[in-house]
Each structure stands twice: as C-alpha cells, then as structure tokens.
Amino acid sequence: MRRRLIPARIGERILKVAGWSVVALIVAFIILPAVVVAISAFNDRAILTFPPQSWSLRWFRRAFTYRDFAVGFQNGLIITAFASSIALVVGAGFAFAIDRYSFRGKRALEAMLTSPLVIPHFTIGLGFLILAAQVHATRTFALVIVCHVVLVLPFVMRSVYVSLRNLDGRLELAAASLGARPGMALWTVTLPLLIPGLFSGWLFAAILSFNEFTASLFVTAQATQTLPVAMYNYVREYADPTLAALSVIYIVVTAGLLTLANQFLGLGKVLNVEHAR
C-alpha cells in the first residue's frame, strides 16, 4: 500500500509543477509585448532595435507634446464621458427591466442591444458612417457618441444585470412590507446596493469607449479624432518609439484602474468568474 502511494504522490507533484510551468509560460506570453514596449519606449534611438544602446525619456516628451495626441486625448475624454454615462443610464434601466419584468419584444430588444458583441465593429462603424451620409449629417461628436453608446452598452447591461441577479429580491419585499412605495424601495434599498455594479459597468464602458478603434476609424473626422485613431495614423507616418512611450502610459493607467476596481469591487464577481457568497 505504502509503496504504491509514494510514486503516485511524486506523479502528482510533477503534474503540479508542469501545470504551473505552463501557466507561467502563458502569463509570459501575455506580458511579453508590454515588457518589450516598455524597453523600447526608453530607447534613445529612433529605430526599433534590441537591446537599446542608450536610454532616454525623449519619446515620452514627444508623446506629450505631439499635437494630434493631445487633441485625440481631449476628444476621447469628451466622447468617453458622454458615451459611458449615457450607456450607464440606458443599460442600467434596461438591465433592471429584463431582470424584473416580462414585456412584449423583450427578447428582440435584448438581442438587438447585445448584437454589437458579435457584429464586427467595422460593420457598425460603416453602418453609422453610411447612416450619417444618408441624412447628410457630418461626422460630429454626436455621431461618434451614439456609435460608442451602442458598442459599450452590452458591457454595462451585463455588469448591472449580474449585480441585480446577486441582489436578494426579498430585500425589496421587506422594504414594501415596511411601508416603502416602489419608487422609495428602489431609491433607498435597490440603488444603494447596486452602486458597485453600476460603477464597474460605467468604468468598463469608459475604458472600452476611450480605447475603441475600429468603429471610431469609420465615424471620426479630423476634428473628432480619438486617441487610438491618432495613434494608428502616427504609426503609418513615423516609425519612432513615441507610440511605445504612449503605450506604456496606457498599460500602466489601465492596469492601475483595473487593480483598483478589483480591490474595491471584486473584478471576479463582476466578470462572473467567481461567486458571491
């Protein structure tokens, strides 16, 4: 008995080590581009080479002073602020409606609003571009914002919907039995408990909107260009590591925001990969 047990235990050990090695390799694959970008961002020379011969911060300076990036950043903030806030209001209301009520056309409406998850962004971008041309509208901020609302809505809906599912429906019944009218119960019980879900939905929407590229390429004009579009145009013209510097800032800010979100909201629960107890 004992003699059989020991080799089995060793086998399990080996399996465990092998498993974690595979995971480490995968993590390395995910992180590799970020590390390489970070190295090249501090490279003094204008051509991408490895390893860098000398170091400098000039590409960061250029990233901050290049006019198109500054404009794209501002445009991005405007568009993101409107798009994510509108998407939050629309998506939260609708998530509540799908969770609580049955009504005619519910399924169709849900399918239409989640379709941007599977319909290619270039198709949606092209659609809004043609739509604008048909009504002879120019490529204004409004067009970009509407397009972004449609694109990020599924993520807000999902985030709020998951929070609503995790909410105990009896809390509202308890409020009603204590004399709270539906509006009052919503305001004093449901809404405060949904705040983490609403916030994470808004945050997801904001990050996705700010970084959206493909559809934006179709619906933005020179004046409404967002940062990713400006970055794409930059790569087509220049080969220096300015974009690497910008990418580093991007990665650091995004990872920082997500770490904060994880700390305060529990990303695992929001993404439904771990369960609320």
Binding site: A174, S177, L178, T188, L193
Partner: peptide, 30 residues
C-alpha cells in the same frame, strides 16, 4: 391593498436585512 399600505410585519427566512444600513437604520426603516 399594496403591501406597503397593509401594516403587516414580515420576518423572512434569510431575514432580508438591508446590508448597507446599520441595525438601528434597519429597525427604523419602516
């Protein structure tokens, strides 16, 4: 009559205490 006008107290199986309110706020809610 809707539940909020019935003047009926309910104790739920899982208690359904409002998690974002203190004990006193819970009791004072009604």
């Amino acid at each position: 009559t809707p539940p909020y006008d019935r003047e009926i107290g309910v104790v739920f199986q899982n208690y359904a205490l409002f998690p974002h309110m203190s004990v006193a706020k819970n009791v004072g809610y009604g």
